[in-house]
Nucleic acid binder design. Structure first.
Lengths: 189, 189
DNA sequence: CCATTAAACTAACAAACGTTAGTCTTGTAA
DNA sequence: TTACAAGACTAACGTTTGTTAGTTTAATGG
């Protein structure tokens, strides 16, 4: 018997709806209907529709940032770092795919304050990935490719992973992680 | 002096706005304002807001399908096919990045009829990519990885390419194509 | 010079939106 | 039993939305 407060429930169900139709296409009345209450009742728990989006997106973005910062501490090889990077991306995605869909698709609908904060976080995050790849190249672990191409390719794949898992993939998460790591690092040829 | 008819102009400017803010967050009044006319005037050229989205998305989706079908004709190695596949993806993206953003983000806002048509096209398209990879594995050109992981990784990267090009990349398109092909096919280690 | 037409305009519509104010209900602590 | 608080409700608000009807304007062809 899990005791979940109403606020979390609202955010959770909103994430699901936002993922399917996008923030702008989901009304407060839609969210309310999913919870079998009236739209006005939502305001006993949250201040605005915007707040739902902020909580949703900032939370998950901060989770990625925390995971990335943990990576910075250790002094391992760049390849080891990249493997851990792939690993926590998949872990977080499996834990909350709806939130990641919102992050990807609806961050531009954040109010100015939160949008600025998010974009800053995202830029720093990408810069950290860039640093790892650069380190790998300097150390001779990674081929001398254009860094942006490598970073872009990895992040694109990891960020849209939520779209694919469960659709066609019959692998469990461990198998999947190994397979994706292989493909991303060692190529397919 | 290019003579562009008003309808194309509307679609073009809409694509740009949809890309920035998403279909649902752009009003007919917004589109009109970008063209320095009133919203009602748009209806001299198009039937509805939905029609703008349909024309935009279906056109670009069909372009991808045509390019893919051209690939099927020849009987070359799987690797050669994949290289051409990467090539035309980048070419089309460079030609019309706004339309591709709409395709990626707003296809779910198509009316039922067009959405069904699009999803069918997309599924067939992905199935064709799968076939190429499968052929490559059968022929021993491609390593024995999970096919879905390979297809997903390539398509994710190519589909979100529009987000990256021009942001950090100083490569011209030929250099970029070569670099991305290398990364996707041969890996980075 | 007149008739036609393309493409802009004004004004208005009904519906849907986020949100607020105020009320009723129900379970719990004193 | 009473007092309180949480959380649902109804009713309504001012905007914004896509779209329509009808009108004006300016360029074109006979």
């Amino acid at each position: 018997m899990e005791k979940v407060d109403r606020k979390s429930e609202i955010i959770h169900i909103s994430a699901k709806l936002f993922r399917e139709r996008g923030y702008m296409a989901v009304s407060m009345r839609d969210i309310a209907k999913s919870l079998d209450i009236k739209a006005a009742s939502l305001y006993n728990h949250i201040h605005s529709k915007q707040e739902i989006l902020s909580l949703l997106i900032i939370n998950i973005a901060e989770e990625f940032t925390r995971a990335m910062n943990n990576l910075q501490d250790s002094n391992e090889t760049a390849i080891e770092s990249l493997k851990k990077f792939i690993d926590f991306h998949i872990e977080i995605t499996l834990r909350d795919p709806d939130a990641i869909a919102c992050l990807n698709n609806d961050w531009m609908h954040l109010d100015k304050e939160h949008r600025t904060y998010y974009v800053k976080m995202r830029d720093e995050y990408e810069e950290n990935v860039r640093k790892i790849v650069k380190r790998g190249i300097d150390m001779g672990e990674i081929k001398e490719h254009n860094i942006e191409v490598i970073v872009f390719s990895m992040l694109s794949t990891l960020r849209t992973f939520y779209l694919w898992y469960g659709r066609k993939m019959k692998l469990n998460s461990t198998e999947f992680k190994e397979s994706l790591t292989q493909v991303l690092l060692n190529g397919i040829v």
